[in-house]
């Protein structure tokens, strides 16, 4: 039986290989030739727009006002996917805290919590705790930079949130955040829900035009609405309509969500 299945694996791999090769060599425009007429290279000289991506490359910047086209696809053209995906992360966070609930309750968060600086088994010296405190501030600011400049430089809500969550991991290791697990989890869970509600709230605010529409783009510059001309530009912070707000909401949700997972797993895995 195993051998038969191994042979079918080889068959699947062969099919994948033949199929993908027949697809098109890497770098050619998408799809089989007779569907996409011209073969132009430079971005400006593709005459007619054949696929969704050509449209994004050509009009994405002016339509959504953001320099980073990937962010414009993530937070504007396919914002519904990102909403669904933020729900996936929210589900993972709540199910992990649900599944570990009995394990942590049985361990009793208060008593077995490692006390303040200096009591980590093996005694974390002050250098480590103070150093990690400084580093914590740097990581958080870098994370916020990534989140806020999502629509200008590569980055955005997810990457910035993940960087900030690594700061929480740093605090956990240097035993600066080990008191009173339930209270920290409640606060994080509150802010995570707040971030998500902000995200879907912006979607609902735009319901006048349509759900999750970028109604702030190309509006008045005070409200992230500065219009952008096609082509390279130094990048303006107030330019991409709802993109920075959605990126901020996702950054908040990812940061607090991943911190909940880290805190839960840290306290579940403590002194077996």
């Amino acid at each position: 039986m195993r051998l038969a299945s191994f042979l079918s694996l080889v068959l699947i791999a062969a099919f994948l290989f033949v199929g993908i090769l027949r697809l098109h060599p890497v770098g050619e425009p998408l799809g089989n030739p007779d569907v996409f007429k011209d073969r132009g290279d430079a971005i400006t000289d593709i005459k007619n727009v054949d696929t969704m991506d050509d449209y994004y490359l050509r009009n994405g910047q002016t339509e959504t006002g953001s320099n980073n086209l990937v962010a414009s696809v993530v937070f504007d053209y396919r914002a519904f996917d990102t909403l669904g995906e933020a729900t996936v992360l929210f589900i993972v966070v709540s199910s992990i805290s649900m599944l570990f609930f009995t394990m942590i309750k049985r361990k009793g968060p208060e008593t077995s919590g490692v006390s303040r600086i200096g009591e980590f088994p093996g005694g974390v010296s002050r250098v480590i705790t103070f150093g990690s405190f400084l580093l914590y501030i740097l990581i958080i600011t870098f994370g916020i930079y990534l989140v806020v400049h999502g629509h200008l430089s590569p980055g955005g809500g997810f990457q910035g949130g993940a960087v900030m969550a690594s700061a929480t991991a740093l605090l956990l290791i240097s035993s600066l955040m080990t008191r009173n697990v339930q209270k920290t989890k409640k606060i994080f869970s509150f802010f995570e829900s707040l971030g998500l509600t902000l995200f879907i709230g912006i979607g609902f605010v735009g319901i006048g035009v349509s759900f999750l529409s970028n109604f702030l783009a190309n509006g008045n510059p005070l409200l992230f609405g500065k219009a952008i001309a096609f082509g390279p530009n130094p990048g303006y912070l107030v330019s991409a309509g709802t993109l920075p707000l959605l990126s901020l909401a996702i950054g908040m949700e990812v940061f607090f969500g991943l911190s909940i997972i880290l805190v839960t797993m840290y306290h579940a895995a403590k002194d077996e």
Binding site: V49, T51, M52, Y55, Y56, D76, Y77, R78, A79, F80, D81, G206, V209, S210, F211, L212, S213, N214
Partner: peptide, 21 residues
């Protein structure tokens, strides 16, 4: 069409493919 200026128009005039969800 989620997020479009006109939610009921699936494909815009100038294009022949939908660009949003």
């Amino acid at each position: 069409v989620v997020g479009a200026a006109d939610p009921l128009q699936v494909i815009r005039e100038g294009l022949d493919f939908p660009i949003r969800i």
